[in-house]
Write a protein that binds this DNA or RNA. Structure first.
Lengths: 233, 233
DNA sequence: GACAGCTCTCGTACAGTGTGCGAATGGATT
DNA sequence: AATCCATTCGCACACTGTACGAGAGCTGTC
């Protein structure tokens, strides 16, 4: 009657202890190297095995299946996100630091954007961030369920802003395009919409990098303001 | 010197015209049926071919590669999103309707959440939504680049809220789990964090469906308030 | 020393994937 | 009747995740 169990690594008891030789950490580290270098599609068990000078299937002693490996790798990414103790800096600053940090971590590991949309964040690192965020919003003055709602809102914004940015980056094979030609193609795509065309004339396509930065700031300020407005009293 | 071209279906001239027999539309329709029934991993060219009682590789006459098919399918999803003409209902209502609509469309086609994070939305349907959204925010009083920033902020929130929801849904094979058991497992995962534990005691896990609805509303109101606050004057 | 029982490695095999290629079909035009 | 061209598709290739089961090396007990 239990049906298909919910099968996350994090909701099981961990394996006893790592013996000498290979270990989960070593495997995860190697996997991340491959992922950073070749993206999510570039990671195959055989390639990972080779990198560890081991057989492809040896990995399966440490890890139940590839998805489990990805869960481990994913939580490692959460570990890279930095967030001050909210009590030290106040909630708005803590929120901003977290937001910028999350964005830059995801941009540094573009493959993690795909994982975001694939598996819940239940690893210890993710949970630690979630905990700090809860404390942050309690400090701000939220209570009860609103603490969670505020947290969801903030992370939703960050995800939603960053994920498509990654998609866009990877769609144009990283810098190997001619801006003018690009602009022309997009212009043709929106030719039937005067409002969209008008937008193309703004000079903003010159430096997409900082444009996105500015857009991110704008949205972040809006979200924080909006949350603040929902505080009691 | 152009390097790897940016290769979206939408930025190329379309194929002449569909002859009788198979057509792109028919293929896309069949693909969506498979996707809805079996998810993103369930869609293979052979299966799609079979559904159309055609050979697997026949599809490649209409479509350059699988990714291109996914682009087509993706834009079809955008076509399902409904948004009133902003001039008719005012910007806040238009924004709310769009937000609810996007959320429900993505939840209805969970596989589209993965596509969101993989390819930019450049199809005609996506562009039409983008255009309406621009007009909506101009109507609200935004000008210049702020129109875009506001748009990014809103869609970011919707994506970011919905994508993890889909991930969560699919992680627990759709309803086949025991809530009590689930709660116990999660509780164990957060056992070191008093704030997180306290959260588990709230009764909110009883009906995740409406909980998420409420959370979505909370965040949406916050975002809209925050945007409103950035209006000039 | 001999045997048993672990932990750990890995070769092989299987069913599946996307898709390049080139041969075949069939209808329309000359 | 011959030519052309749109369209179909079988085959093959390289690649994927991983089940299975045989082995290797170590440890502890008689």
């Amino acid at each position: 009657m239990t049906g298909k169990q919910f099968a996350s690594v994090w909701l099981r008891e961990p394996r006893k202890a790592a013996s000498p030789g290979r270990s989960r950490d070593e495997i995860v580290r190697a996997a991340i190297e491959i992922l950073d270098a070749e993206g999510l599609d570039g990671l195959s068990m055989r390639k990972l095995g080779a990198k560890l000078s081991a057989g492809a299937t040896s990995i399966y002693w440490y890890v139940a299946h590839k998805d489990e490996l990805l869960e481990l790798v994913y939580d490692q990414v959460w570990g890279e996100m930095s967030m001050p103790e909210p009590e030290d800096v106040g909630w708005r600053d803590a929120a901003s630091v977290l937001a910028y940090s999350m964005r830059s971590v995801i941009l540094r590991h573009p493959w993690s954007a795909d994982l975001l949309g694939r598996m819940p964040a239940l690893g210890p690192n993710a949970i630690q961030v979630a905990d700090r965020m809860r404390r942050m919003f309690k400090l701000a003055g939220f209570a009860g369920m609103d603490v969670d709602y505020a947290g969801s809102t903030l992370t939703a914004y960050i995800y939603g802003m960053t994920i498509p940015e990654v998609a866009w980056n990877s769609a144009m094979g990283e810098h190997e395009y001619d801006p003018a030609e690009m602009k022309e193609m997009v212009t043709r795509a929106v030719r039937d919409y005067p409002d969209m065309l008008e937008r193309m004339d703004m000079t903003a396509y010159d430096d997409p990098q900082t444009l996105r930065q500015v857009a991110f700031d704008f949205g972040l300020m809006s979200v924080l303001d909006g949350l603040e407005r929902r505080l009691p009293t």
